[in-house]
C-alpha cells in the first residue's frame, strides 16, 4: 500500500464524511421514526450505503408500499451509478477483481466526482487513494446513522437547523466544479429541464433518471470536436 496516497484519500474523504454526517444522522432519525430498529438502520447504511436512496426507501417503508416497488425505487434513485461506473472504468483498468469489487461497492456521488477529477487531471486513480477516501466516508456514515437512530426522537426540527438545504447546496457545488467542461451549459440546461418537468409530470424519484438521460442525450448530439483525435486524447485535452 502506498501510505501517502492512502493518507491523502483519508483526508479528502473525511471532509465529505463531515459534510454528510448530518444526513447520516437524519437518515437514522427518520428510520427510527418509521419503525426501523437501530440494527436495521445500521444494516441499511452498511449494505445499501447510498444516502438519497436510503431516505427514499425509508419514506416508502413508512407508507407500507409493496416491497418490490421499494426495491425498484431504490434502483431508480441509484440508476445514475450505472453511468458512474461506466465513466470510471477507464481509470481503474489496472485494479485486481477484488479491488474492483470494493471500488464499485463504495461508489458514491462524491467518491465518483473526486476519482474522475483525479483521473482527468492526470494524477491517476490509485487503489490506496480510492480505498482511503471510501473508508473515510463509509465508517462515519455507518456510525452517524446508528447515532441518529439512537437519538432520532431527541433531535430538533431539521428545518430550524437548515439541515434540509445542505444536500441540494452540496450537489450544486459539485455541478459548479464542472463548469469548464465542453458542453457544460447545454448539458446542464437539458438536465435541469428534464428533471424539473419529470418531477412534475412523472414524479420522484424518476426525475433523476429522466433529467440525467436528457442531459446525456444533449451531450451525445452536440457537435464533436472538429479535428479527428482518438477518444482518449479528447478526455485529456479537457482538463
Amino acid at each position: 500500500m502506498n501510505r501517502s496516497e492512502f493518507n491523502q484519500g483519508l483526508k479528502g474523504g473525511l471532509i465529505i464524511a463531515l459534510s454528510s454526517a448530518p444526513f447520516a444522522v437524519l437518515f437514522g432519525a427518520v428510520a427510527s421514526d418509521n419503525g426501523l430498529s437501530v440494527m436495521e438502520a445500521g444494516l441499511m447504511s452498511a449494505t445499501v450505503y447510498a444516502g438519497a436512496s436510503q431516505l427514499v426507501g425509508i419514506e416508502l417503508f413508512g407508507h407500507h408500499v409493496a416491497p418490490w416497488l421499494i426495491v425498484l425505487s431504490v434502483f431508480a434513485v441509484n440508476f445514475r451509478h450505472i453511468l458512474y461506473s461506466a465513466a470510471l472504468t477507464r481509470y481503474i483498468a489496472h485494479f485486481t477483481p477484488v479491488q474492483k469489487f470494493l471500488t464499485f461497492f463504495l461508489l458514491t456521488d462524491p467518491q465518483f466526482a473526486e476519482a474522475v477529477q483525479r483521473g482527468e487531471s492526470g494524477r491517476g486513480v490509485s487503489f490506496p487513494w480510492y480505498i482511503g477516501f471510501g473508508a473515510a466516508i463509509y465508517f462515519p456514515w455507518l456510525f452517524f446513522s446508528v447515532v441518529g437512530a439512537f437519538f432520532g426522537r431527541m433531535m430538533g426540527d431539521p428545518r430550524a437547523l437548515a439541515i434540509d438545504v445542505l444536500l441540494p447546496v452540496y450537489f450544486l457545488g459539485l455541478v459548479i466544479g464542472f463548469r469548464r467542461k465542453p458542453g457544460f451549459y447545454p448539458v446542464v440546461v437539458g438536465s435541469a429541464l428534464g428533471s424539473v418537468l419529470g418531477y412534475h409530470f412523472v414524479g420522484s424519484p424518476w426525475h433523476v433518471s429522466i433529467g440525467a438521460a436528457v442531459g446525456v442525450a444533449v451531450a451525445a448530439f452536440l457537435p464533436l470536436p472538429t479535428e479527428s483525435v482518438p477518444a482518449n486524447a479528447v478526455t485529456e485535452m479537457e482538463s
Binding site: 445514475r80 453511468l83 458512474y84 461506466a86 465513466a87 456521488d109 465518483f112 466526482a113 474522475v116 450537489f171 459539485l174 455541478v175 464542472f178 467542461k181 465542453p182 458542453g183 457544460f184 448539458v187 446542464v188 437539458g190 438536465s191 435541469a192 428533471s195 433523476v208 433529467g211 440525467a212 436528457v214 442531459g215 446525456v216 444533449v218 451531450a219 451525445a220 478526455t235 479537457e238
Partner: peptide, 9 residues
Amino acid sequence: NAVPAAVLT
C-alpha cells in the same frame, strides 16, 4: 463525459 454534470443537476 457529460454524466456527472447531467446527474448532479
